[in-house]
Design a protein around this nucleic acid. Structure first.
Lengths: 339, 339
DNA sequence: CTGAAAGCGCTAACAA
DNA sequence: TTGTTAGCGCTTTCAG
């Protein structure tokens, strides 16, 4: 690694002269500036970020904690985070909590000591179900800001970026009701997650609101595991012969259901209308392609970065905000065409 | 942020005493050690990693450059990288090149100045098609080692972790031939990527090798885009009425093909046998579930970390290795059952 | 047993 | 216009 000292030595000037010359300081003569820059280029000098960070007490680095990178939704958010960070001149250190409290806690401690200027994170499933928040509050108290996205801890006061899961499910359910569906089932593989609960509530609320809909809500808990899920969905579709609407609130059960239902002889969307929460990519793995609640995952990532950087660079204290990112209902082929 | 200085001040001792006490130095009295540790815990002291890195001239951080995080294969590799890094006490800084040379190059420059001890990366599509290697060689010459995985630059001398794509495709094709298939088509959406080319070669080689197989190889280039792909696959399946074997060398065209073929009235696997290169997760999105060439993506990530850390900690110079990670053919429902 | 001092690479106030 | 110095947080000789 080539340092200022090296440049100074080869030129026979002092380190500070070199430092200033490289930043076009008016203190330094044109001549030296060009000489310094030349040799810097020649020796391929790169300032040591570490030293800079230590000096400036900021790292231009964001710690990102993702619960599950194999989940497309989170992968897309990471994509958005990376894009926006790069655009704003920040690097990201990515940690995966794998849905455990322990890893989440470790990452926070490991990085909240000057390694990063702030965090962007979604809390792990374990953290959420246990209701742990101490580690989060501690970090914030140490003046390392956190922006939470998607899965947020309600009793932690920090910036948040969420989706209006309640309304998304509400609207999706309404779409089915307006098609005249009489038995709409909700399939839930999200377990204890807050987003899952919100979606279930939205579904129930929609059913309640519409007098034309008379059946009781049917919420079926299924597994997260693909193979189990396949069987469970098949069972649901077989047993509920009169089911004519299906709301799948995770990424994959929608397409799976469509494929299974067709195999079992149901005609989609005529017999059965299906709406999922799948990503665009997944939704084309069935035919007809799955109608979905589209979540602007990339935007969630981008917005999170914006909020964090805003706080970091303007030293905003307090006044935390919660931003709700839009969703949209994308009707493709598994719902009736709208005229 | 609380520093050694702070601890020293509150205890009325010197910084160096505190530093030594925290590492249980025999120079320091038992008494002071306990007092120091107590206060350190109380004030929640965390050593500043930046300062340590600057001092030690190593960061215990690995730069990871991923071409496309939305690609499940890469997401799984990242998962493996993160797991193993954590296990070995390293952090990762993740950069996404989005398949561009520019971002890849930037990331390399940005971090190869002391921010990371080494890199783990897969070269971007653009880098590969342009045959750019200068930035890679430069980094290595600056004594920042690189481990490349999956998509590697052949003319760069560094550690590599690859899959035997040629043989994987060869074996998959053989599986179809041994089922007695007479017209096996290969669908390629991988464009110019080296892995794609290798898979095509493996396919061709297998066809050649078996005298029982008499048809010419049929390689059909398709798009990467989901919607286009859907139409293109439909067209292929419609036009090649006598196709009885299909090898899909990317992550999704396999499941798509199965779903489309069934909709078009083909019986799978009797009429048509399909093998894909999909991840386990995706392969269950068709019914029957897709038979695949399973790639141990997590293992690729883990192995890459092991190789890099080995080089970093043992200061291995030269003697670069290439490790080939296993694949396995996982026969599920889209190929004939083996007796 | 404890502390002072130098140094990792860099910047910036101050001197020359 | 250039150089000296101190300091970011830490470790590590070397003195006390």
């Amino acid at each position: 690694m080539i340092t200022l000292k090296d440049l100074a030595a080869t030129l026979g000037v002092s380190v500070s002269t070199v430092s200033k010359a490289l930043k076009d300081s008016p203190e330094i003569s044109k001549d030296t500036i060009t000489r310094v820059k030349e040799i810097a280029k020649e020796l391929n000098y790169r300032p040591n970020t570490l030293a800079l960070s230590l000096k400036n007490r900021k790292t231009k680095t964001i710690g990102v904690i993702i619960p599950d990178i194999l989940n497309t939704f989170f992968a897309r958010i990471l994509y958005g985070i990376e894009q926006e960070s790069t655009a704003l001149g920040y690097n990201i250190i990515t940690c995966l909590s794998n849905e455990t409290f322990e890893k989440e806690n470790n990452s926070l401690h490991l990085l909240a000591n000057g390694s990063v200027d702030g965090f962007i994170m979604s809390v792990s499933e374990e953290t959420q179900s246990k209701g742990e928040v101490k580690h989060l509050k501690e970090t914030i108290n140490q003046d390392v800001p956190i922006v939470m996205f998607d899965r947020v801890a309600n009793d932690v006061d920090c910036d948040k970026v969420i989706i209006d899961d309640f309304n998304a499910a509400f609207k999706a359910t309404e779409t089915l009701i307006k098609e005249g569906r009489k038995k709409i089932v909700l399939v839930n593989s999200l377990g204890e997650l807050s987003v899952g609960k919100l979606r279930v509530l939205g579904y129930k609320k929609a059913l309640e609101k519409h007098d034309s809909y008379t059946a009781d809500p049917i919420v079926i808990e299924v597994d997260d595991d693909q193979e189990l899920l396949n069987d469970q969905l098949e069972k649901i579709i077989t047993e509920h012969k009169d089911m004519d609407g299906l709301l799948c609130i995770d990424n994959i059960s929608g397409v799976m259901s469509v494929n299974i239902a067709q195999r079992l002889g149901r005609t989609i969307p005529n017999d059965l209308s299906v709406i999922g929460f799948s990503s665009n990519k997944i939704s084309h793995l069935s035919y007809p392609p799955l109608s979905t609640v589209a979540q602007y995952a990339e935007e969630i990532g981008q917005e999170s970065v914006k909020m964090l950087v805003e706080r970091l660079e303007n030293k905003t204290k307090g006044n935390t905000k919660t931003v709700t990112i839009n969703y949209s209902i994308e009707l493709r082929g598994t719902t009736l065409p709208v005229s």
